[in-house]
Structure formats: C-alpha cells, structure tokens
Amino acid sequence: MLEIRNLHVKLEDEDKPILKGVNLTVPAGEVHAIMGPNGSGKSTTSYVLSGRDGYVVTQGSATLDGQDLLEMAPEDRAAAGLFLAFQYPVEIPGVGNMTFLRTAMNAQRKSRGEPELSAGDFLKLVREKAKALQIDAEMLKRPVNVGFSGGEKKRNEILQMAMLEPRMCILDETDSGLDVDAMRLVAEGVNALRSPDRAFLVITHYQRLLDHIRPDVVHIMHDGRIVKSGGPDLALEVENNGYADILAEVAADA
C-alpha cells in the first residue's frame, strides 16, 4: 500500500539533509511501527508523506497504491486515503468541531466524486463514533481542539480518523502526553479500525503504545534511515536496552 523508496529530504531553508534514503513498505492490513531516538527523522517522514510545507525532497519516491504522493496537494493525499494523526493537534478558535469534521468529510467525498453526507446521516455517524471514544456532545460542539486536554486532543484525532476512514493511517507520537487510561481509549479506537484493507504506520518513542496496538513490523530509524526492522520483539529490546546496543550492532554490520 505505502511504498517509500530511497527518500532523501532536506529542509527548505537549510542544506542539512534530514532523511538520507528511507526505504519502507507497508502492505495493506499491517501495522508498522517506527521507533528511534530524537532527531532521527520520524516526524519528518510523517510530514513529508502528508505534504507539509518547508521540506524539499531531493531524491526518491513515496507512493500510495501506486499513486505518487509527493506530487499531490495535502488535501488530495487526504482524499486518496492518507491520514496523519498529529503529535500536536492544532487549535482553531471559532470553528466548531462538528463543522470542521463535516467540512472535511464532504470535501473528501466531493473530491472522490461521491455525494455529500446529509446532515442527519452525518450526525448519526459522528455520535456513534464519538461515543466509542467517550467524546461527549459538548466536546463536539466546542471549537476545534480549543481548551481540550492533551488526552482530549488525541481522542479527537482518532475521532477524525474514524470518521474519514482513511486507508493509510500515520500516527505521529499519538501516545505523547497521554495517561494510561487515555492511551487505552486511543488504542482501542485504532484497533477498531484495523482491517485487511487498511494499514497503519505508528511513530512512537516508547514501547508502551505498542502493548496496546500490536505491530506486525517494527522499524528502527536513526540518522535519517531505517537501520533495522523486525517483529514486535524489537520494540521490547529497545524498551529494555535502549537504542545504543542496536545502533552499535548496526554500525558493526556496516
């Protein structure tokens, strides 16, 4: 589903490379995790895939179901089925959460040539999805993320994901700032969306989240590259020994 080939990326403003040849394949139905120390390029990978300004791809490719992601506007990537759950969800004062959700849903449907959802159908759907994430009516009415706690913001991201039903979901440090209960809720929300035709890329510092969202493959990122890939045990190894051992081993192999 998601294919990243030899991806090289630098910041628009400086010549310093951040991604130095990332290779990654995430097939439909699988959950892949990317772990790695700070500054290894994890978040940059998620931003480049979703089309944030400020990055320049100097080499390589990224495709979703064969479509060239890097050529598309962010909204077109979303309509094509890509979703990024933000590490820091953005507050938008004065725009109701419901208005935002409905605008996004209908914009994507329109882009795909599908009819808009009626107000009634939308309400029914949003209530049902919100309930599972313990998001109450009050929170749906409030302006987008304004005055939300850290946990509420992350649950709101998962609600958007549940409503938009993307095929490729990227979660950027969704566990940061979450207490144990909130993490369980978020993980349940994600697990409910797991399906044979949907894939996940879970970016995280810690193994904790992966106790709740069991990955099929774990990748270790370091200095702008995926340096090691393995099963769920690799996450446990990081948890127990830190990155130093793995990185030393990778260096020795090279």
Binding site: S50, E75, F86, I92, V95, A104, A107
Partner: peptide, 24 residues
Amino acid sequence: FYLRSRGVPREQAIVLLVLSFLAD
C-alpha cells in the same frame, strides 16, 4: 496544513480560517 491534511482544499480552508479569525 492541519485543515488541508484533513482533505479541506486550500480555498475552503481560508474561508474557515477567516471565520475563525472573525469569531471574537
């Protein structure tokens, strides 16, 4: 970027952000 990443086209996102600005 947040709005566009949710599928809202740039033009429509400007409308929402202008409404957001005027809300007070």
